[in-house]
Design a protein around this nucleic acid. Structure first.
Lengths: 216, 216
DNA sequence: TTGCGGATGTGGACAGCGTACACCAAAGAT
DNA sequence: ATCTTTGGTGTACGCTGTCCACATCCGCAA
């Protein structure tokens, strides 16, 4: 980005970056053509050389936000106890996926709101966070925790539950609740789905006070 | 509402009614001061005699939308099989609550989007749909299906799951999926949470092809 | 009955938004 | 060295929410 040329040099990515910065606190509503071009120091219409309209810009920023979600979830996955049995580790990985999703939603609600827009999972172009979920569920089958029959379409209960909780915790009734209450509810909710999938309770019942981890 | 008086007569409710009509297809975005006052045949500023700002109007319409959700869910509850055992009926009632919520979201997505705004459940002013869920869960305890320990805070897993699924089905990746696929997923998802709560599988495993009911 | 005050609706204005159209500046190819 | 393509500017239109001053009507009190 040369200093003060007539041409900006890399306006497209500059707008996306500014968009991420703005959306972090303001959510999707903070992504205005005028607002972002102003932040980048350029005329509003300049953006139209790189994005068809506001919606296209929002989608581009949203894709970036999805990467951030996946990165946060991945970090949490790599932090789990390596000394556990394979079966336990697989369950813990799934739990990390769920709690990572929820944690991200609560700590980065602007980005989270954005990330959920224009989700097109399914056969085409699975978004990164979705892929982590698929891998975790496959891990349960590989370690014999889940039968292939039970695993089929297990993505939907899992994603539904953690996403729903994330929405309740960011835009819904849990919005202004004591964070520790929300933490506890999150752990409860994630364990409930996992049990619902058919995972033996022995693999998920933690002792009270939890196995030493900041959760949700 | 006399024909063409200077004063409208009942502008407040007229605006809410127009708002419901507009939001049904357009969601919250369709609730504009100018748009609604125009629909009612009055000046934009007239609305400010009844609502502090746009947000207040939206909240008022949202409250109405919540009533609609509750009504739809209630209808579904009253339609369940009366010949079942008390325990089975209690489980069916909980399922009806969940599937009713999802069904409403999918068939009235504009109203649903609106209904979720300004949810303030918890000790204060529980919204009608939430109350139906509480009652259903209490029913499980009363019929001995659920122990009081398991019932505690069971609202969150339930609400999270059905709400999350509703969101996936209306704004998320299931948005443009074949409705029959979504129906099946909805049934699967609801059964998964219920099982996760600790309900014996015998009370929820339906035979394939389902027990003769249009679902989700 | 008159008149007055509070409630309600009008009219005009302002700032901000997304975006279409015409124009201009610079980079790259011939 | 000129021509074309790419990318940025300037102006303008219609839309939005909201503020201010003013007009109008209803109900109550004198």
């Amino acid at each position: 980005m040369r200093a003060r040329s007539y041409h900006h040099g890399d306006l497209r990515t500059a707008l996306i970056t500014a968009g991420l910065r703005a959306a972090r606190s303001g959510g999707a509503a903070a992504l205005g053509m005028r607002e972002l071009t102003r932040a980048v120091g350029v005329t509003p219409n300049a953006a139209y050389r790189h994005f068809a309209d506001r919606n296209a810009l929002v989608r581009a920023v949203a894709a970036e936000a999805q990467e951030l979600v996946a990165r946060a979830m991945h970090e949490r996955i790599t932090g789990i106890n390596p000394d556990a049995s394979p079966a336990q580790a697989a369950v813990d990985r799934l739990r990390a996926v769920g709690l990572g999703y929820i944690h991200f939603a609560r700590t980065e609600r602007g980005w989270f709101e954005l990330a959920f827009l224009t989700q097109e999972a399914g056969p085409v172009a699975a978004p990164p966070p979705y892929q982590l979920l698929v891998d975790a569920l496959d891990g349960l089958v590989a370690t014999g925790v889940l039968t292939p029959e039970r695993r089929a379409s297990a993505e939907w209960p899992c994603w539904s539950t953690v996403h729903g909780f994330a929405d309740l915790a960011t835009r819904g009734p849990l919005r202004h609740q004591d964070p520790r209450v929300v933490d506890a509810a999150a752990a409860r909710v994630v364990d409930t789905v996992i049990r619902g999938l058919g995972v033996p309770p022995a693999l998920l019942l933690r002792t009270p006070a939890d196995g030493g981890s900041e959760n949700a």
